[in-house]
Write a protein that binds this DNA or RNA. Structure first.
Length: 361
DNA sequence: TAGGCCATCTGGTCCT
DNA sequence: AGGACCAGATGGCCTA
């Protein structure tokens, strides 16, 4: 139901000031150095072709290496000077590939491969850590690498804006900021995590005054007609996203953040304290994440991070209603899975306390 | 089947 | 010489 929740283009017109947002694709600064390396390759050691993988054989083929590569080559000229049909190579003279050298090359290459694997694994685990501290995190359904980076960038920017402006962010702008440059599926996901529910916006705005600013009373996101849905459960919606994001159900909501109601039960076994930096939209910080719907075919859990209480108790005055959200239920839903199921343990961001303190003053 | 995402291999470049 | 980093190529997996 929430597919196509937000039209990305329509979502973003107001947020133009983000440095580097203008052209993500354009910033794909493909290298220039290659242009300078048009000379013929320098005497490559001829690694044996029987090494497994061998996906990048283009180079060797282009250089014209063949069975005769053991012959020493003239290193004076290159490329344009063609001796016969084949360009001459320059660079160090090729040495004979003795069996020992071949073996050493193999070993060296294998070691390099292993290092590269390790390096990429480290990179991926760093990326996983990053996933845990951006507003939407799921163990079972990860954001792609690029989406994680973009969302993290947006998130940092949004938090920075909060600090700079010294006031609570406009909700729509906040969502726009978070979703800037994200793909449609990820935008839907983030929006789903924030669950911009018109019902609550409207009721809160009408009944509780200005707990937050809604520029458009008939809530729609810059043209996106998000008409107050009557969800079976305000806490969980199922949605699907294409491409990298498999179908999932997610939850956690703006409802919960804004709905008045009982405070969460921090003594609940579900509650495990803060694991996540705050997604601060209106100043409500809390520890645990919103629940997820268990009735999904693949059990994807998406959550928004409620975070930040500097202590271990959230002030009820902020009216966080875990789980039940807009229904105003006091205790959080029994559907809420253990927090760690959705959120791996990780450290808090440093700015946490400051932000928390800020929003509680 | 096309397209997106990812892991891996590989060679080039830079640095120590 | 060897390690770190990078980017291209390739193939596998998954989803629409």
């Amino acid at each position: 139901m929430l597919t196509r929740l937000f039209n990305e283009q329509a979502l973003l017109p107001d947020v133009q000031k983000f440095p580097g947002w203008a052209d993500d694709s354009a910033s794909d600064d493909s290298k220039t150095k290659d242009d300078e390396n048009e000379h013929c390759p320098q005497g490559e050691e001829d690694l044996d072709d029987d090494m497994k993988g061998g996906s990048s054989r283009a180079h060797s083929e282009i250089t014209g290496e063949d069975d005769e590569e053991d012959e020493e080559v003239d290193e004076e000229d290159c490329g344009e000077d063609v001796d016969g049909d084949r360009p001459k190579r320059r660079g160090p003279k090729k040495r004979k590939m003795t069996p020992e050298r071949i073996e050493r090359s193999k070993v060296r290459r294998q070691k390099a491969n292993a290092r590269e694997r390790t390096r990429m694994h480290d990179l991926n685990s760093a990326l996983d850590n990053l996933r845990k501290v951006v507003p939407c995190y799921s163990k079972t359904q990860k954001l792609s690498k690029i989406e994680t980076l973009k969302l993290a960038r947006n998130y940092i920017w949004a938090l920075g804006e909060i600090l700079r402006n010294g006031k609570r962010p406009d909700v729509v702008s906040y969502v726009q900021t978070l979703c800037k440059g994200l793909s449609q599926p990820t935008t839907n996901l983030v929006a789903g995590c924030l669950q911009l529910n018109s019902r609550n916006f409207l009721t809160e705005q009408c009944q509780e005054g200005s707990r937050f600013h809604m520029p458009n009373p008939a809530f729609s996101l810059h043209g996106f007609p998000y008409q107050c849905p009557r969800l079976p459960s305000p806490q969980c919606q199922s949605g699907s996203s294409g491409h990298g994001l498999r179908s999932h159900s997610y939850c956690s909501s703006y409802d919960a953040m804004y709905a008045g109601g009982a405070s969460p039960d921090y003594n609940s076994p579900d509650y495990e304290g803060h694991h996540s930096p705050p997604v601060c939209v209106n100043g409500n910080f809390s520890h645990r994440q919103e629940s997820v719907s268990p009735n999904t075919e693949r059990g994807y859990h998406y959550s928004m991070h409620y975070a930040g209480l500097s202590g271990s108790r959230a002030p009820a005055a902020h009216g966080l209603a875990y789980g039940s959200g807009a229904r105003g239920g006091g205790s959080h839903s029994e559907n809420i899975p253990p927090f760690h199921d959705v959120h791996g343990g990780h450290e808090r961001a440093p700015a946490y306390e400051e932000l928390n303190a800020f929003f509680h003053t």
